[in-house]
Design a protein around this nucleic acid. Structure first.
Lengths: 337, 337
DNA sequence: TTGTACGCGTTATCAC
DNA sequence: GTGATAACGCGTACAA
């Protein structure tokens, strides 16, 4: 591998001059600059980022830890992150944990070893102390989730209130037997959506019923399975709130396979507003999170941490929106796939 | 940041011993080992991977460059890559180019600077010489695509024959006006699928017609738009072959919006067999690529390159399969979403 | 304006 | 078994 000293020799200068040319330092005579650039070209020289990062103590790279890259919800967030990162000269690399805590910890360790200047976590299922440890050794922003009792920067929506909004709407539509398919309950976000569901029932003076609460894992399959359970109850629900769109689609599939109609027999609402939600038939009512904005704000916050700039607000809460489509029965059905 | 020398001092040993303990070298007295481990714990020491990588001249990290992480087709391939990588002690980081050549080049540059021990390209839209340059400085495997005239390891399916299979099938079903929505034609893979389409028409003695060929960009929207163009022809096609599933879904959507039925009025076939293809109504006939296997084989090949092992076959071609579902009219319709 | 020389934090090679 | 010490390739005071 050709290195800086080779370039220097060929150009008849010192490594310092080569380095200066590379970093755009203006204090280099034009003639030497040209010689150096020619040598670089001739030798096909590529600087060693490892050495450079080690020396400068920064890598200009950040890592985003994602629970599931194939979930379009996250890709939109990542888009927002990359926009801001790119504008500020940072590379973005992704670590996909596939919803596995072990993978999450593995990436965390990798990052702690100074591979990146900062991390954005889109998942935080590992033990609290691990996260604390990570945040202690490198700038961290936690997005979409939060952890009680840790002073760490977060960017989220208010899952409790948005889920309350969903259930309130279903109640207004005349439903009183409302089922919920939650995400994994070891995740705060899932618990919050369940909490909002319960708050709404309480405020609307509807007796909660444990059998109407089923725990899924955010996958379409789990939505399908949990919906079947709900439908097999003695008194099945007339509306089901799935804690994300994938599960909502599984729910719709199950209802149809049972020979029932959506929304006439069972109304369905999802969460996240992914592209898929307008492709299913009927189109899915859902909660829209400002995905791009979550990404943007997260990266902006991370940059401040990296640069040690003062941070006014470490906990950013963004606005969401309930999107009414066909699956909850509030609209007349229009033509769709 | 605490470093190895700090640990060494606290444990009363040299950095060499600390390093030995960390790397699991057995030639360390048990008592010292314990002291070192205690010191590590006490100081919360994390080794600096940058320094380690620089010294060892390897990072045990590979990067996968992906054109679009939200496309589930790629996530399955990545799964296969990670399985093999993980078993061999390699981390996998992802670079998402969002179908942008500039991003592709940016990641390529980053990687050339020794950030990773190897790269798997799931996209190769940059100029040929760029790829050659990359392959010259680091082990590279190109998957799903290939480049003529470059001696680089590749893992693909035979897109020409599989696309011929699709069109042959449509002809057998009695279609003679068959439209195709291609991917971007600056990609070999897209051209190959078009080539297969043309070969089939030729072999079946069907006169090709340029207006039946429309170029999309693999997005659902482009499938929708190109389908509308096809349908507005004086003699619209009775069957449409979309070069990937996303475009096929856009195609179905367009056909429905025109008040026509799939497959009765227009048959549709896609490509890739992503999860979505069983969710649309009607379920999509498509070509299934062995995604996981593509990932596995790619990583295995890359490992051989990294380890400088002899490689028998640099060009691996895997088998694909035409999956007949409802959208091409060969099956009776069953209940689905 | 340019070059020398040291340090970034590890690991490998020697001696002992 | 263990400890000095020299690399790995680059950036930057500092001197010239």
């Amino acid at each position: 591998m050709t290195k800086m000293i080779d370039v220097a020799k060929l150009a008849g200068v010192s490594t310092a001059t080569v380095s200066r040319v590379l970093s755009g330092n203006p204090n280099v005579k034009e003639s030497l600059k040209i010689k150096v650039l020619e040598a670089i070209n001739q030798l096909d020289y590529k600087p060693n980022k490892l050495a450079s990062s080690l020396r400068k103590m920064e890598s200009r790279t950040i890592v985003v830890v994602v629970p599931d890259i194939s979930n379009p919800f996250f890709s939109d967030i990542i888009l927002g992150i990359k926009k801001v990162a790119h504008c500020n000269g940072y590379y973005v690399l992704l670590g996909d944990t596939q919803n596995d805590v072990e993978n999450e910890i593995a990436y965390t360790n990798l990052i702690q070893e100074r591979l990146a200047d900062g991390v954005i976590l889109l998942t935080a299922r590992m033990p609290k102390h691990k996260i604390q440890e990570l945040a202690h050794s490198i700038p961290v922003v936690l997005s979409c989730e939060y952890i009680d009792g840790i002073d760490i920067s977060t960017v989220t929506i208010d899952n409790i209130s948005s889920s309350r909004k969903v259930v309130d709407h279903l109640v207004q539509m005349g439903h009183s037997r409302i089922g919920i398919i939650t995400g994994p309950l070891n995740i705060v976000l899932s618990r919050d959506r369940l909490k909002g569901y319960r708050q709404s029932l309480y405020q609307n003076e509807i007796e909660p019923e444990e059998s109407l609460v089923q725990e899924g894992d955010f996958s379409m399959e789990s939505g399908y399975q949990m919906c079947l359970r709900l439908l097999s109850l003695n008194q099945p629900p007339t509306a089901i709130f799935a804690s994300n769109d994938e599960m909502a689609i599984g729910t719709i599939k199950a209802i149809k396979h049972k020979g029932l109609r959506v929304p006439e027999d069972v109304a369905v609402v999802g969460f996240d507003n992914v592209k898929l939600s307008t492709i299913v038939d009927p189109e899915l009512s859902t909660v829209s999170q400002p995905k791009m904005e979550i990404g943007r704000k997260s990266m902006e916050l991370l940059l401040k941490e990296i640069r040690n700039e003062p941070i006014e607000k470490r906990q950013i809460v963004l606005h969401d929106e309930l999107i009414i489509r066909e699956s909850c029965g509030s609209l007349t059905k229009s033509l769709s796939i």
